[in-house]
Nucleic acid binder design. Structure first.
Lengths: 112, 112
DNA sequence: TTTATTGTTCGCAAAAATACGAACAATAAA
DNA sequence: TTTATTGTTCGTATTTTTGCGAACAATAAA
């Protein structure tokens, strides 16, 4: 009956931003390239530029990337601070959430 | 123009499953309780049982949890193997995707 | 056998996410 | 100034997600 905690909302928020292959591909690309203009990103994705722009906006709103205007172009980049924050948030989450050995009565074997 | 890789799809898939506070709350709860019946989970969430059941189904389909029928009850538990897989997938992702120092031309300071 | 208890599934409604082309604004080049 | 390049925003359509109550199935209890 209780509401969600800020921590839970925060994890879910980051996870949601990562919950689309296009956005993962964008982050992969940003990490691999030295030049990361909008056009370069668009070139490696199978979607229209309007859609790419939308995905970039979501990543920006989640704080995971930033964009700098350079002339008529826009240079995108991973936001290092929040990236590190997200890394820690996920690492903590996976560390906290473990079925302690023997603490639950679930069967060991997997089933469907 | 290229499609997404299996790895990108896999990360996005796990992230999507984690992209709702109710599902994060469920995982937190499963990790903290010794008894994890459906009813116990429902009791700590602010949503109807039909909705809880739906979220559990999604987590199950993502492979993150499993459910065992015990009498008329159902005992849920984190799926340790896939949990470990997800942990590694995210850890790798955050390690791979870093804006190498000085490799991109983004401004250092944050802006809006 | 009848009645509770426990969860899932069904059917539906509302909201959000995804995607696109067209129109637009801003800068750079001619 | 006119034209081209670069991205964003707008409007819209489609799909997916989220949520609920009601109906249902399965086991346990009376």
């Amino acid at each position: 009956m209780k509401e969600y905690t800020d921590k839970q909302a925060s994890i879910a928020h980051f996870a949601k931003a990562l919950g689309h292959p296009a956005r993962i591909a964008i982050l992969h690309f940003l990490a691999s390239q030295e030049t990361c203009f909008f056009g370069d990103i668009h070139d490696v994705l199978p979607i229209a530029k309007a859609t790419v722009s939308q995905h970039l906006k979501e990543l920006k709103e989640a704080g995971l990337i930033q964009g700098d205007i350079e002339g008529p172009k826009v240079r995108y980049c991973i936001n290092k601070e929040n990236w590190e924050l997200a890394r820690v948030v996920f690492a903590d989450f996976f560390n906290d959430c473990v079925c302690k050995k023997g603490s639950c009565g679930c069967r060991e074997e997997q089933h469907d």
